[in-house]
């Protein structure tokens, strides 16, 4: 099957800053794909190349198998939901939504009908005559969605779509976007710096760092089998142990990552069950998070491991801060990383 979107060795530099460094990527039709990374990692540049707002210095962009590297945005079958929504302030909500049809010279009657349908899809039918300034953040977001979808694109690009919304609204919109994508069956590509968002919505995630893709995997794959220390600590939080300490614990000098929730706190003395790996340290402090607590245990001068501990009713009480403890985990739970 032809990829909906393909990047081949795409590079882009701004002056001396390399924003994208020979990135190759294939996104399948109908996929919900996330570009995840910290700011300046190249994820937004990548999206802009796909939308056509920017051209790569070298490499190619293909849509549906066709090279569109030099095709301007208005001739690409791709639509974008902008981070600041970019609604036209001098047009009503309905006019904003119908804009894509207007510039394609679709008749007014047809335009009105389809704009009304799109507004119904995002449940804003009562707001058609309002101006964008009269809408809340979540409503603007939905207008931007309706406007981007009216041309029936094969690919929808979303640039930090939920960044400006508050927490509760963000969670609602996550579910709404996911549902919308499944109903429409088109490819969604979204940029985010929020790993939780990427994990909960995307089918696959490309993790960007310093202009390159560090790892491209399913959310579960990223979380359970991070390949590099960057991915391990950026996606979820992981304890990364390297150098002499890693060798001391595992007997190999490759760095490894262990998730906080997979570590068990045991008394410093006493026998260790067969097969567990362990490291001794000092309990420095405990942060209570409600459902769980975060314990920080110092192993040596450079290493502070974080342990998540479920706050269930039967949990044994923790020793006081400053006590010596032993951290233990199953060898299979530790993920070996590329050094």
């Amino acid at each position: 099957m032809t990829a909906a979107i393909e990047l081949r060795d795409a590079s882009r530099a701004f002056g001396s800053v390399v924003a994208l460094d020979r990135v190759s990527l294939e996104i399948a039709p109908g996929e919900f794909f996330a570009l995840l990374g910290p700011s300046g990692s190249g994820k937004t540049t990548c999206l802009r190349l796909i939308a056509g707002f920017d051209q790569p210095d070298s490499g190619q962009v293909l849509l549906d198998g066709v090279d569109v590297t030099d095709v301007p945005p208005f001739d690409r079958d791709v639509n974008t939901v902008f981070q600041d929504y970019a609604l036209f302030p001098h047009m009503s909500v309905a006019e904003n939504v119908a804009y894509g049809l207007r510039v394609r010279r679709i008749a007014t009657v047809e335009r009105r009908k389809r704009a009304a349908e799109m507004l119904e899809l995002v449940r804003l039918d009562d707001f058609a005559e309002r101006r964008p300034t009269q809408l809340s953040g979540g409503q603007k977001q939905r207008v931007a969605l309706a406007r981007a979808l009216i041309n029936g694109p094969k690919v929808l690009l979303l640039d930090e779509p939920l960044g400006a919304l508050d927490l509760k609204l963000r969670e609602e919109m996550q579910a709404e976007l996911k549902g919308l994508q499944q109903r429409l069956g088109i490819t969604f590509v979204f940029v985010t710096h929020d790993q939780g968002e990427a994990l909960s919505m995307a089918d696959r995630v490309a993790v960007f760092n310093a202009g390159r893709i560090e790892q491209l995997d399913t959310p579960r794959g990223l979380y359970t089998r991070p390949r590099t220390a960057f991915v391990a600590s950026f996606v979820g939080s992981a304890n990364v142990v390297s150098g002499a300490l890693a060798e001391h614990i595992t007997g190999r000098c490759t760095p490894f990552a262990i998730r906080p929730e997979l570590i068990e706190i045991r008394p410093a003395e006493g026998a260790l069950p067969e097969g567990l790996l362990a490291a001794a340290g000092t309990l420095e402090g405990v942060l209570y998070h409600g459902a769980s607590s975060r314990c920080h245990v110092r192993i040596d001068a450079n290493t502070l491991l974080s342990v998540a501990r479920a706050e269930s009713a039967g949990a044994a009480p923790l020793p006081p801060a400053g006590s010596r403890v032993r951290l233990a985990w199953r060898p299979a739970d530790a993920v070996m990383l590329e050094s």
């Binding site: 945005p73 639509n79 609604l87 510039v103 406007r147």
Partner: peptide, 9 residues
């Protein structure tokens, strides 16, 4: 950009 994205020359 939004205008171009929606197909406007």
């Amino acid at each position: 950009q939004a205008s171009a994205d929606l197909g406007a020359r």
